[in-house]
Amino acid sequence: MDAYDYLFKFILIGDSAVGKSCILTSLIENKFKKGSSHTIGVEFGSKIINVSGKRVKLQIWDTAGQERYRSVTRSYYRGAAGALIVYDITNRDTYHHLINWLADARTLARADISIIAVGNKSDLKDKRAVTFLEASRCAQENEILFLETSALTGEGVEEVFVKVAKMILNKIEDGMQHIEEGLGYHGLFSGLIDPATMMSGVHAGARSLLNEASPAEPASRCISC
């Protein structure tokens, strides 16, 4: 029952009240958690999902969003393979802060962390303040994935997790190839991206990797800029 092929640690970050905990509840319990308290320290959830025929166990850490909690949430980033940076499509400020969260994720987690920007509350169409296109471009410029979700209806929620997991799996498979080609274990994770040349590392590694690994997944291509 509990068997899985891979285990990935994910973190859910982003401003206060954008719906991080609701996304987690939506994923794990398939329902919308109405009338709950905000997160203080950390909420934890885990789920096994199927990604490209593999059983992937996700350990998801859901953090407090208030700016001041950043120093205490630091320790949750350690070793995270995936990060969901959530903003509220009805609140531009939360979108503007995406870039700060991105810097946190890239500084505090492993160098090869796979990141997705998540525009939540997509059900609130009338109140939309951030367009799909601009967020998509922003994600592209910052070399991260992007999707919109509604924790209320559940739309897009599982896809977000699957998408990031798929990206991590691709990196792993690429790392395996490196090993087979005699490049050594170094290529498996950390070698994909050299922290010293982070920019070029991501460009070269990620693009070739994603283009050949998932041609049928057009959304993934938005990281390939």
Partner: peptide, 8 residues
């Protein structure tokens, strides 16, 4: 790791 300057 200088990120490209972005809209936000």
């Amino acid at each position: 790791h200088p990120p490209p300057p972005a809209k936000p």
